[in-house]
Design a protein around this nucleic acid. Structure first.
Length: 629
DNA sequence: GTAGGGTTAG
């Protein structure tokens, strides 16, 4: 008897280990069938294992089916298991629907049920459902349960109702770390970073301060708050402060800090974090791989991004997100060929592309002018991959067609899209009108767009240029005046260059840098050298945008553009042959682009420049964007 | 059981 038991539990273990390896539904069904046949499905442990495996590996609808049709009166524990699993599945709403069925079943709720349900609300960002569950759990007597309270605070915070969160928080007699962290996140989400930081600074240390990981969560909450607010420098400062406070960073805090590095283009700090993870033997899971690949890509180092990609373990490589991070990296480097190759390779490995993957593909086609390729990708999305195009994908297509000068097709695309075009879509079309000089269409769209989105400076700039192109100077001046009246500030151009760990920041016409006079002198000599080689300034991009009245004045302004100051500083401060890396917050203007190409040739320097949306890798007078940007 | 992390058009 003892022997049979052992062998049957061994067989169970074996079956369960097969379960983990399932990657298709057919495989899953086979294991399920084997479990049914051998009677394992009467074992509660086996059922639990089976359901949780399904739930955690994107077979949640299969789990639902088995749960609802294949089990006899599941107990509260199993209901909770299902509600929890579904709350973080790709359809969190099914978690709430299942709860409705639970209400009419023989099982009863327990204190665990509500945090799971609220998790579903958070993932759905569902405020209304949160209030309903709030009322419901209060009536059922869980109103003072700290887990439920914290989950409520979190749901209200996530859905952007910080006042609801605060009211609850203030009523808790002894808020714990989770309460504090959820509240802090709520203020961060609401953009109230000052309040969030004040709370963070003043929160009481946990009595059981030995739990270091808890401290790490508070730190990460505030750090990622800053990252989401676009305040990446502040985020990195806090990350350093975290270390000097002897709270060792874990995976999650490293991931936050890495995304700050990605946005700042801070390669050195990013590398440091990467090697820190290696030294601490922190394994690179798929999320860390994603942010590392993204960081290296956004810092201009695709070789290193690829190395990270190759080093992630087989299981992690399967994640769509990791593939997509790499593909997006190639896209923003304008490497259309690599994008397509990796896309194919990914499918050979059996990884299904998601909506984001397609955005990356379409972006790459747009950047490299692959119109036919882009169209075929777009039309294959739903047909071959069952990925429904969203407004973002339509936006990419408008951009693709518009850039290529196919304005009528782009226009038709907007009119025929099944959803309401957003400001970004119209913005792409407007920009295309400006690039290709379609005054009539441009004026029509520009007017509408300014009405739709009056705080967006870029629209006025395009609009003024379009009026000017049509010779309507009075209208151009009026647009400029309107922009001023609305108090819409043009975001100042800003370029940075990092040398020996110090980031130098330049804005247009800025004289605050301590070596500014030497830089200006150097630029004059660089300019002479370029002029001797045929350089004539390109003033087209500046038409009426800057407050200049004649070409001479425009020229003076264009020579003070921030990327010119940065590249000049790079020439001064680095050894011959060193690659110069520049990050810019706006798009590079035509003149600066021309200058970069000339410098790369005359001074034999590679220049890697990241602008608002993509990379320009300039070598020997040529840019990887092929002058198509 | 509740709190912190990923790729995305302009």
């Amino acid at each position: 008897m003892a022997l049979t038991l052992t062998s049957s539990s061994l067989a169970l273990e074996h079956t369960l280990s097969c379960l983990h390896k399932c990657s298709t539904e057919v495989e899953l069904k086979q294991v399920h069938a084997r479990m049914l046949k051998s009677g394992f499905f009467r074992d509660p442990y086996a059922i639990t294992k089976f359901l949780s495996t399904c739930l955690s590996s994107s077979f949640s609808s299969y789990a639902q089916d088995v749960f609802l049709n294949g089990l006899d009166r599941p107990d509260t524990f199993l209901w909770n298991l299902m509600i929890r699993g579904l709350s973080s599945s790709d359809q969190p709403e099914s978690s709430l629907l299942l709860y409705h069925r639970m209400l009419s079943s023989s099982a009863t709720h327990n204190p665990y049920t509500f945090p799971f349900l609220l998790k579903a609300c958070s993932n759905l960002s569902a405020f209304h459902e949160t209030t309903q569950i709030h009322a419901h759990l209060t009536k059922l007597g869980y109103g003072n349960n700290i887990y439920s309270l914290n989950s409520l605070i979190n749901s209200y915070a996530v859905t952007g109702h910080i006042n609801h969160a605060r009211l609850l928080f203030d009523r808790i007699q002894e808020p714990d770390l989770v309460s504090w962290n959820s509240l802090i996140k709520g203020y961060a989400k609401a953009g109230e970073m000052d309040t969030a930081l004040t709370l963070f600074r003043n929160m009481p240390l946990p009595p059981e301060a030995g739990k270091k990981s808890n401290n790490a969560i508070s730190w990460t909450t505030i750090i990622s708050g800053y990252v989401q607010a676009g305040m990446n420098k502040e985020a990195l400062q806090l990350f350093h402060e975290m270390q000097s406070s002897n709270v060792p960073p874990d995976k999650v805090s490293l991931a936050s800090a890495l995304s700050a590095c990605a946005q700042l283009g801070a390669l050195d700090q990013g590398k440091w974090i990467h090697s820190y993870a290696d030294k601490q033997r922190i394994s690179i899971d798929s999320v860390l791989a994603c942010v590392l690949i993204d960081m290296y890509a956004k810092c201009g180092d695709m070789e290193e991004a690829l190395r990270v990609f190759k080093n992630v373990s087989k299981k992690e490589t399967r994640s769509v997100q990791v593939w997509t991070a790499l593909i997006s990296g190639y896209a923003c480097h304008g490497l259309g060929g690599e994008v397509i190759r990796k896309f194919e390779e990914m499918q050979e490995k059996g990884v299904r592309p998601n909506a984001v993957t397609f955005t990356a593909l379409l972006t790459a086609c747009s950047y490299t002018g692959l119109v036919e390729q882009g169209k075929s990708v777009f039309y294959s999305m739903e047909r071959d991959y069952k990925v429904k195009p969203t407004v973002e994908h339509y936006g990419c297509m408008v951009d693709l067609l518009g850039r290529a000068g196919l304005l009528d097709q782009a226009n038709r695309f907007v009119r025929e899209m099944p959803m309401k075009p957003n400001a970004v879509v119209w913005g792409s079309l407007l920009k295309a009108c400006q690039i290709h000089g379609n005054v009539e269409m441009g004026e029509r769209i520009g007017e509408m767009l300014i009405g739709m989105d009056p705080d967006h400076g870029g629209r006025y700039v395009h609009m003024a240029k379009i009026h000017a192109m049509g010779g309507k100077w009075d209208k151009a001046a009026e647009t400029r005046r309107l922009m001023k009246e609305q108090g819409v500030a043009k975001v100042p151009g800003c370029s940075t260059i990092t040398l020996e760990g110090t980031t130098h920041e330049f804005t247009a016409g800025d004289r605050s840098h301590e070596e500014i006079e030497r830089i200006r002198t150097k630029w004059r000599s660089v300019r002479r050298k370029l002029e001797e080689n045929g350089y004539v300034p390109e003033l087209e991009d500046m038409l009426l945008v800057d407050l200049a009245d004649d070409d001479e004045e425009r020229e003076a302004i264009v020579h003070q553009h921030s990327e010119k100051l940065a590249v000049t500083y790079g020439l001064m401060k680095t050894k011959p042959g060193t690659t110069i890396r520049i990050m810019k917050n706006l798009r590079v203007c035509k003149d600066c682009h021309k200058v970069m190409k000339l410098i790369s040739k005359m001074y034999k320097r590679d220049i890697v420049m990241r602008d608002r949306t993509r990379f320009h890798c300039v070598r020997d007078g040529k840019c990887t964007c092929g002058d198509y940007w």
